[in-house]
Design a protein around this nucleic acid. Structure first.
Lengths: 362, 362
DNA sequence: TGGCTCTACTAATACGTATTAGGGCCTTGA
DNA sequence: TCAAGGCCCTAATACGTATTAGTAGAGCCA
């Protein structure tokens, strides 16, 4: 019925059997000619030519669904996000990842299937089976803050190739991911500050326990320890609302000469800090240095020259695609590639850190 | 073989036939119970219960591949772009379209397949059949500057549902599209200027004959005619390089009180104009009004308050998806929906146009 | 007892491709 | 003239689910 309808509205897609009829051969032969013929069946050149010509003439394109059902591959990679794939607020931070994913997928001849996770699609079950939809693809990339662990675990256990973009601790080492290497990058920022004479600083972070935040804190602490920086009161957790000029002045009175903050989705932390610094009548970096662990929310604006490091999102996207295709093509009896990869973050010199002021010297 | 592999690595996923065996019924019954049973086959409650229990016990999840092979629809929409889908330079102008496409697709329970067009993928044929790949989806959206007319025509002729994003003249009315309605929006900008007393202005446009540019020019001309604006020298074609302070001063000396420009991919035209105005020592809008037919390149920057109109990209994306799904589900014997749709552009008040200065008054 | 209706289910087949096990036909050599 | 072998191709089947046609059995009536 449904097929009839498809056939009624315009000409139906040609199938291998149509080509077979046109070329005077069997469907098997068509499959052998147009498919890989991995089995090495011997075919006459003349026959191949006829089949290829017929296929061209009819505009044949293999049905990836049927291909997939019959064999395994369909050269499609899934991309599953646990929010909208194209978020409007955090466009700046998601977009480069998508760029990298698309670049590498195109280079490898893979198409992308976008799965929309929690976007409230009524027809699709939002239940425990929601994630299983991704199996139409050979493998799937995941990203987003929330991870439905059990479902992802079932996919992994079932041998389905998937790669998470961003470090994840969920499945004790069995969850493949490509993340950013925040720890050394964060430590390096602290080292740079220490090299400029800073001895007392404040690391203002969000009150959030995402791996990305934890990593940064660990890096800051490690860097501080290595540089002999005062650990007392170093880490400040906030949601941004309690950062104001008074507090910044108080820090400075305590001898703090540099502030470090982290990238957030909304940029609230950075905005709060820069606002408070300005309100306090302080200049940056003359009176107070400022560094950021990650990228400012909108490039091109005034925040463009914040010192710190940049997250290699594009490269993460590319690497994730590469890892995923490796997992897909990896024979089960071969050792797998490294499942968990960290990409280094590039330092950003910027113009918001400078030598420690007089308070810092002493 | 392949199946064996899947079964070897990790436990095999249970199939309907496994449930059938466990529940002591046929595969058909399982399909009826777990699928929708659209046909309304009568089943005993007790049987349903047994099947559901067995399915739960075995952790059954339907195989979407097989599901889609068995029914002709696969609830996937294609998105084909003739450049990278995620361009880096013109992110601001493409992104909202993608947002709209994804929103509506998700709302309609459709997944998206991104086809990577000209990204030089070696494994996929770049030949005349390249476009045929899109047929794996139920229908496909297209966008990008260049249109391989013959290939698209073959798809359209074959009854394949597709929708272009952006107005296109190629197939004499048979190519469905969703575009922006530039003509009245552009005319309205001119009318607003006229209402403020402007009588002589310059429309600085790119030397390019894309439908979007042509439409805007037609709108400007229509608006100028309606408002009794001087048509002489009104339209200025440029690539931006010959716009400088001297030229702006010369216009002003001729009695020009307002400049109108159009949105471009790079924002070069706008940048050249604002630069030249500043260089000429003129203020905007006090000395010279400035309007833009479209959106400034980067929101949030200094260019945020340019007067003119905004292109409803997000809405275009949504509408394109809606039209496409209509085309897909439209029974062949029914009249089709309107194939070519224009979405109105929203006026932007901004702060760069004001009353005509003294030159303009007289 | 044959026929009819109703309930509750199943057999058979389709979807489009991949794969495997052969099966004709032709040539060659004895 | 028959067997062996090479060459070229095809029949049959599998993949997992959806759908349609049909059947077995029970109950009822004439």
């Amino acid at each position: 019925m449904v097929g009839d309808r498809a056939r009624a509205s315009g000409r139906a897609r040609p199938r291998q059997s149509d080509i077979a009829r046109a070329a005077g051969v069997s469907q098997t032969t068509v499959s052998l000619v147009l498919g890989g013929n991995k089995a090495g069946v011997v075919l006459a050149e003349e026959t191949k030519r006829r089949v290829v010509e017929a296929a061209d003439a009819l505009g044949y394109v293999p049905d990836p669904i049927a291909t997939r059902l019959a064999s395994a591959r369909n050269d499609m990679l899934g991309l599953f996000t646990f929010s909208a794939t194209f978020p409007t607020e955090v466009a700046h931070s998601y977009y480069p990842i998508l760029v990298g994913v698309e670049e590498e997928a195109a280079a490898l001849g893979q198409d992308l299937i976008l799965f929309t996770g929690s976007s409230g699609a009524p027809p699709r079950a939002a239940g425990p089976a929601a994630l299983h939809r991704v199996r139409v693809a050979d493998g799937c990339l995941f990203f987003g803050r929330h991870v439905p662990t059990e479902q992802v675990e079932r996919l992994v256990e079932g041998g389905y190739p998937l790669v998470y973009i961003g470090r994840r601790d969920e499945l004790e080492g069995r969850l493949p991911y490509v993340g950013a290497d925040y720890v050394p990058a964060s430590a390096d920022v602290v080292r740079r500050l220490a090299d400029l004479g800073h001895r007392r600083l404040r690391y203002v972070r969000e009150n959030d326990d995402a791996p990305a935040s934890t990593d940064r804190e660990n890096g800051v602490l490690a860097g501080a320890r290595a540089a002999g920086i005062d650990l007392d009161g170093l880490v400040v957790r906030t949601d941004g609302s309690d950062i104001d000029a008074r507090r910044v002045r108080a820090w400075r009175d305590e001898g703090v000469t540099a502030l470090v903050t982290e990238e957030t989705d909304t940029g609230a932390a950075l905005a709060a800090l820069t606002g408070a610094i300005a309100d306090a009548g302080l200049r940056c970096p003359e009176d107070l240095s400022l560094a950021m662990l990650g990228d400012p929310p909108a490039a091109g604006a005034a925040s463009a020259h914040i010192s710190g490091f940049t997250v290699p999102r594009r490269e993460m996207g590319r690497r994730a695609v590469r890892l995923l295709t490796q997992l897909i093509t990896n024979p089960p009896d071969q050792p797998p590639p490294p499942l968990q990869q960290l990409v280094p973050c590039e330092p950003v010199v910027g113009s918001t850190i400078g030598p420690a002021g007089r308070q810092g010297q002493q």
